[in-house]
Design a protein around this nucleic acid. Structure first.
Lengths: 192, 192
DNA sequence: TTGACAAACGGATCACTGATCCGTATATGT
DNA sequence: ACATATACGGATCAGTGATCCGTTTGTCAA
């Protein structure tokens, strides 16, 4: 890649990160290009679609996330690992408003730039669930798709500002369904 | 209202119903107007926003839905009523692909045409939950907002074709969290 | 029945979106 | 220093919803 191209590439990523933090994933591509002092065509050449941009934008964070799943699998009880994983996921989704909808739409479309990222999260989730089903107290009448779905659904919900404050509580409710016999040790007092 | 205006109004509603059934709530307003053999301005005069159109489109179905809540409250056990209500809601959302996102966005915005509809669903849910908490086995560490949130989240998820087949199962999982001690009588065998 | 007027209509236009084309500028390596 | 492949970005296109405004039409009174 030519030097100027590489400079634009990383500059665009940085600008996109800021813009998205302020205005969510629906920010217009023109806006991002403008703020980066770059032509729209340049932005679209580096990132042909909105999803491609977010794939590049999220990849480091997603690597961290899935790596976290590995750590949880090694050093925590199956139940604790699953719950922590759910919380990690929520924390991730909340840092990029709107990204869940993008991922949910991409997760069955192999052509999407986000497909691989979705698959990574999906498989990490399925792994942790299987382990909790085998060694822990996770209900056995659900599979990785169900877990991924519930994670996506709550992630989407919490994108709405009015539900963000109750994120942890909603996760608590849903995880209590996944792990019906789990002790509630360490669970915060309910906020009614 | 003038006779021709009234004719256009109901004709537009009928056409919109068909178009939305085929293409979801994101169908372009121009498309709907075109299929109704009407100018775009005419559609937008009758329904200034997309939400206004859906408010009119859904109002009868929503009345049915909230009325169903009343019936459930009278003739079913608190637990059964809550579960049936959740299923009714899912059935409703699945008949208008994309409407959940619209309602979720509107539910804190009093200016939205869908605000009243959201509030109706919200209050019906809260009522059924309170009753299940008082007389039934619903967990007491959640409120109407939480229930509405979970309903919205699952409704949104099931809009995605890949998750639609597991709708009932996901509802089963979530309601089992809301009603932790409920007997599982009548519950279909788990499909793993 | 006729006429006047308010009401509804819809084509035209605007600002905006992402996608694409192509002439221009420049970084690169010989 | 030059030649060329590469990247750039202005211009343009089809699409969106919103709005304006001249034209048509339904309605009610004379």
């Amino acid at each position: 890649m030519r030097a100027d191209a590489k400079k634009n590439y990383s500059h665009l990523l940085a600008v996109a990160h800021d813009v998205v933090a302020k205005h969510g994933v629906d920010a217009s591509m023109r806006d991002i290009a403008r703020r980066a002092d770059v032509g729209l065509a340049t932005l679209l050449r580096h990132f042909p679609t909105r999803e491609a941009l977010f794939e590049a934008l999220l990849c480091t964070n997603l690597d961290e996330l899935t790596q976290k799943a590995d750590e949880l699998e090694k050093s925590n009880s199956p139940d604790e690992a699953l719950v922590s994983w759910f919380h990690e996921w929520m924390r991730f989704t909340q840092s990029y408003r709107g990204v869940v909808a993008l991922m949910a739409a991409a997760h069955t479309n192999p052509d999407s730039a986000l497909y691989a990222s979705c698959a990574a999260v999906h498989s990490a989730s399925a792994r942790l669930l299987l382990r909790a089903q085998a060694e822990g107290t996770a209900r056995t009448d659900m599979n990785g798709d169900d877990l991924f779905g519930l994670m996506a659904a709550l992630g989407w919900l919490v994108d709405l500002p009015s539900f963000a404050p109750r994120a942890d509580h909603l996760v608590h409710i849903v995880t209590s369904a996944i792990l019906p016999n789990r002790s509630s040790s360490g669970v915060k007092k309910a906020t009614r």
